[in-house]
Amino acid sequence: MNLNNLKPAWQRFRLLNAMQPVDQEEILWIIERTEGMAMSKHHRFAMNAFMFILLTICCQGG
């Protein structure tokens, strides 16, 4: 079997898969979801740091 004979088939397969239009909303959802997740991670970290500092200050010299 000559692999080169399958090259046109791969091109056809690729073209077939390119025919369905991309759902832009879906792509935006995927990339914005990660941004949201990164933001909430930072937010959580900031909140935890703040609580830690607050507790450290409040519980000193008891």
Binding site: F13, R14, L15, L16, N17, A18, M19, Q20, V22, Q24
Partner: peptide, 9 residues
């Protein structure tokens, strides 16, 4: 959009 054929394949 331009490369979805590759990704989906």
């Amino acid at each position: 959009e331009a490369n979805q054929g590759v990704i989906k394949s």
